[in-house]
Write a protein that binds this DNA or RNA. Structure first.
Lengths: 129, 129
DNA sequence: CTTGACCTTCCAGTTTACTGGAAGGTCAAG
DNA sequence: CTTGACCTTCCAGTAAACTGGAAGGTCAAG
């Protein structure tokens, strides 16, 4: 697969793939005889994994760490396991933080819902925001 | 409270408070006769709220939206409620994304835990990372 | 009455994650 | 055999969220 095709399949851009290669999130791609990058199909899945991590608020560095562990497959190394444990703890903390924030926002919403919507003229843009 | 004191109480810096004021996340502070900013004690809580939002991966713009809704108190306006509903949906999506990611990382961890830790010489730095 | 720890404004630099654009090579289609 | 849509490298710019530093004002303590 060529770069543009791969990028489109993963919902991103060719520029971004080159950038990820540069940052080590994608392995250096094979080249066709004409010099074009040639990607295996599984790169699409890898890009989707990166996108999910980004959506979840992980940095490229964090995602890169996880991917490099995945890449070496069966890794008995204790350092690798420690890193994964740390990643799990970080993810748990982040999820807890978001959950608490959600509760707070839900309170604001309930308070706002208690007001009378008719007090706001639907023709006008809300003057508060 | 002066700026440094307020910042310290919230675990941040005076620089950051001025920056937040500039971005509209903090109301323009009152000034003492000497020109120093004078903060009420509740600013600490507001800063903690901002920090929680940042930790959870919200942008300052998103946090600012939530705060401006909170600031107007009882807001019956339908636009405000729509915005809060959207924030809740966004938070739910982000939590779901993170939870899925956590499950994937847990799989990596279980796979790594299946290996033999003795295969890694504890004297050496892990060659994989 | 000076030292040091505060504070003020303003402007420039940093990091992260792209994004745009120049200058040029490749190749299937008309 | 040229046009257009790809691709290549390289370098510069952008947005977000700070962070640092210069130049100078304020004020309690020694």
């Amino acid at each position: 697969m060529r770069i543009g095709e791969t990028a489109a399949a993963a919902g991103t851009t060719a520029k971004t793939l080159r950038f990820y290669e540069d940052r080590g999130l994608l392995p250096v791609a094979d080249r066709a005889p004409n010099g074009y990058r040639d990607y295996p199909h599984e790169t699409v899945g890898r890009l989707e994994f990166i996108r999910r991590g980004r959506t979840a608020g992980l940095t490229l560095a964090q995602i890169g760490d996880i991917l490099s562990i995945r890449d070496i497959g069966q890794a008995p190394c204790i350092h690798v396991r420690d890193l994964l444990v740390k990643q799990l703890r970080d993810l748990d903390a982040q999820i807890a933080e978001l959950t608490a924030l959600r509760a707070t926002v839900a309170e604001f919403h309930d308070a706002a819902a208690a007001g009378d919507p008719a007090a706001c003229d639907p023709e006008r843009i809300c003057s508060y925001l």
